[in-house]
Design a protein around this nucleic acid. Structure first.
Length: 478
RNA sequence: CGGGAUGUAGCGCAGCCUGGUAGCGCACCUGCUUGGGGUGCAGGUGGUCGUGGGUUCAAAUCCCGCCAUCCCGACCA
């Protein structure tokens, strides 16, 4: 395996691909636009999934599973939804060697299927709310794909809920947006800007769409997760009705919210460096890797390995995910580079000299700082450094976000900054779709979000000069 | 779907202009060597040159078609 990767500064997008492939997170598959998530990458996904699944359940949701195929007539029930998704649908038209009477879409999202079932299940106000989540794969026939960031098939979770009132639905939408924000920050160490999408960017069929937006190392924004208040659109289209307390027929309000394997792309681009990936301890498949240092050929197995095994067991006992790299076919220097590429947060070097001094060398992946740690205090020290590293990654990413979020007052300044440095530009917007479209055409930047905690607009619309209705975040998006 | 480029070993490339037994680096295998930041040396395995046709005694090389991939735009989690 060649270990050289393209430096970030030379070609960011090549750097990203190099990390994905050389850290063995994923590989290209022999199918257009699809990737294989390799064991190391899948372990990262599983760690993310486990944490998010817990959060989803703690907020009262239950997991279920719905079919992959969506009959054409069901997908077509909600007009805006079908118009939004039909261009990127894959269709199955033959089954068992015979042409199907009705084509089946491979789900691009599951509103159609799930709402159809909800229409069967919900009869009374006592059946509400319905709080269901699904972990699944979906297919969207994208024209341009990149590993994790945009693939034809991807893995995600999609929550689908029904509520008796608009207020409850909006609360749910915001609760899950907050869940995503917290997950990004606490688990992935990625700071995000939560906010509402403009009409042109909202989900096909939604009343309102919210998202969390992160800023990547090249100054482009990545939509991290979305939460939609679907209003009564889907209940109407799929005939979901219930009798309320007053014995009146009523339409429930629905929400949906999702986050995908794209998060792994965001993780790579937020923390990685020219030596490869840097994983936050909370999602690292291995939080610590132990590299034994053989003193002389032949006797390292007797001298060093038992001590390394002892240290590994000690740390495992303290709840740390440890890997002992006992390959006797690779040299220490090779292993350092290898595990740095894969982003393991902490490395322990342990050789004869350390055993004699009853210590080891502890090295942080992010700063490469080395320290000698007495073996007696190792578990405690690791227990301090892992959370510190997690915090420092978030802190560093927050600084980057702050340094690359600029308030601009004139359109000339807007165009200038968007051309040289990109990042988030905060500016007034008059609320017209026309201004939004022109800015996109002229600068390739779109309105990522109207921030939730947005100050009331202080100036005019950055493009047309009319009074602004909001201060919004602009960026070029992935 | 428009504009540009590229398809030769697992990966990265040379060879093509000027047709004549398919090569280099990395990876992989074997042996020795080395071992606290990607050891070194020697030997070796592996390719219907994207694909179909044409020209020719002879095609990776020249000509035509097709396919695929990548980059830049329009669409998107």
């Amino acid at each position: 395996m060649s270990k050289e990767i393209t430096p970030k500064g030379e070609d960011y997008s090549q750097w990203y691909l190099d990390v994905v492939l050389k850290a063995e997170l994923a590989d290209y598959a022999p199918v257009r636009g699809c990737m294989v998530i390799r064991p190391y990458g899948f372990a990262v996904w599983e760690a993310m999934q486990a944490d998010m699944d817990r959060r989803i359940k703690e907020t009262g949701h239950l997991n279920a599973y719905f079919p992959l195929f969506v009959p054409k007539h069901l997908l077509e029930k909600e007009k805006e939804h079908v118009e939004g998704f039909s261009p990127e649908c894959a269709w199955v038209t033959i089954g068992g060697g015979e042409e199907l009477e009705e084509p089946l879409a491979i789900r691009p999202t599951s509103e159609a299927m799930i709402c159809t079932m909800y229409a069967k299940w919900v009869k009374s106000w006592r059946d509400l709310p319905v709080l269901i989540n699904q972990w699944a794969n979906v297919v969207r026939w994208e024209k341009v794909t990149r590993p994790f960031l945009r693939t034809t098939e991807f893995l995600w979770q999609e929550g689908h809920t029904l509520h008796a009132t608009e207020r409850e639905a909006e609360e749910e939408t915001m609760r899950m947006l907050g869940m995503y924000r917290d997950f990004y920050q606490e688990v992935l160490a990625v700071p995000v800007v939560p906010g509402r999408k403009t009409d042109s960017e909202k989900f096909a069929g939604a009343l309102r769409t919210y998202s969390v937006e992160a800023l990547m190392g090249d100054g482009r924004a990545l939509q991290g997760a979305t939460s939609h208040n679907l209003g009564q659109h889907f209940a109407t289209a799929y005939g979901i009705e219930f009798l309320d307390r007053d014995q009146q027929r009523a339409l429930p309000w629905s929400t949906s919210w999702g986050a995908s394997t794209r998060m792994i792309g965001g993780l790579i681009m937020t923390h990685g460096d020219d030596s490869g990936l840097i994983l936050p301890p909370k999602v690292a498949p291995y939080q610590v890797v132990i590299v034994p240092i053989p003193p002389r050929k032949g006797d390292w197995n007797e001298a060093v390995l038992p001590k390394c095994r002892e240290v590994a067991a000690l740390l495992r006992g303290a709840g740390v995910r440890v890997h002992l790299d006992d390959r006797d076919t690779q040299q220490p220097g090779f292993k350092y580079a290898d595990w740095e590429m894969r982003g393991v947060p902490l490395r322990i070097e342990l050789g004869q000299r350390d055993i004699e001094g009853s210590q080891c060398v502890l090295v942080r992946r992010d700063t490469r700082a080395k320290e000698n740690v007495p073996l007696g205090g190792l578990a405690a020290r690791v227990g301090e450094v892992l959370p510190a590293l997690q915090r420092d990654l978030l802190e560093r990413a927050r600084r980057f976000l702050a340094e690359n979020t600029r308030r601009v007052s004139s359109y000339d300044e807007f165009k200038q900054v968007m051309a040289d440095r990109r990042g988030f530009l905060v500016a007034g917007w008059c609320g017209s779709a026309d201004c939004e479209a022109r800015v996109k055409q002229e600068t390739r930047a779109t309105i990522r979000v109207i921030p939730l905690d947005g100050a009331s607009p202080s100036g005019p619309c950055v493009r047309c000069g009319q009074p602004a209705t909001a201060e919004v975040y602009f960026a070029q998006a992935y």
